[in-house]
Design a protein around this nucleic acid. Structure first.
Lengths: 143, 143
DNA sequence: TCGATAACAGTAATCATTACTGTTATGATT
DNA sequence: AATCATAACAGTAATGATTACTGTTATCGA
């Protein structure tokens, strides 16, 4: 199977044939195995144990690539580093304002909210991202 | 009137008495006069015309301070710079994925969504941020 | 007017992320 | 299996947003 991806306008070519790489597979697999939405640096540090020559640039390049072909999600949530999620489907996130952890919320996206917002906005709303904030279960137990 | 603000633990003191400054007033006033949620650099560039000696560090310091006392809002929305909003009340934002502009959506926050999410999450949800994406009115007119 | 210190301008440092460079791996074609 | 084009790599340098530092100035209560 050949995977062809589009390249943003500007260069000479407008497409690219993907070649497989052990590094990309490892990054994808790692991300799929986790539910804590790690940062690029966390992924890099973890994978270095198995792949000592792995480069941080490679991690970033592949995360960006995987995101561009819709296999993973990247998002900012107030912390200083971007977070990555192996679950590419649209879903809700919770950010603990105390410990910074990020959790999934198993709840269907509310189409009604988007429809409601659309009634109040002139442009065209395609999707929405919601970040719930508060304290995670662990942190509510502490003072 | 004296404004006293708390300082995060770690230093010798745990409070600070605010003194007024022309620069902070100008930053706040500028932010209040706009609806386009400018970046720190945009604020800096604009205000330099009136205040030629204004420093970018001063802009950042005051934005952080104003945010910490709840007078303005700071948020990330996928663009590479943080955005600032003179309207500190909880409201919805729309980000145009084509031109990057940020708009307000005049819609009350849906308490029901938070309640719904709370039913599916163990921790304590205090608030939520939602970013609608799509194309703004101007951009829907273009190809 | 004085004294304590918050705030400043200017600059250096930090940190996440992206870009560059020479080398290696992939995969289609001979 | 050998060749060839090029995607991907490791390693490193560069970028850009933000924060921290330093010596000076402004604010404000005493």
């Amino acid at each position: 199977m050949i995977t062809v991806i589009e390249i943003k306008k500007g260069g000479l070519k407008d497409f690219m044939v993907l070649k497989k790489s052990k590094q990309r597979d490892a990054i994808k697999a790692y991300l799929m195995s986790r539910k804590d939405h790690p940062t690029a640096d966390q992924i890099y540090t973890e994978l270095r144990e198995e792949h000592p020559n792995l480069s941080l640039g490679t991690v970033y390049r592949n995360l960006t690539l995987l995101e561009s072909i819709g296999e993973i999600q990247r998002f900012q949530c107030g912390t200083n580093s971007d977070r990555f999620d192996g679950n590419a489907s649209n879903h809700y996130h919770f950010i603990c304002d105390k410990c910074g952890s990020v959790h999934d919320i198993p709840l269907d996206m509310q189409k009604s909210l988007q429809e409601l917002a659309q009634k109040h906005f002139d442009g065209q709303i395609d999707y929405y991202l919601t970040y719930f904030h508060g304290r995670c279960a662990d942190c509510t137990k502490e003072v």
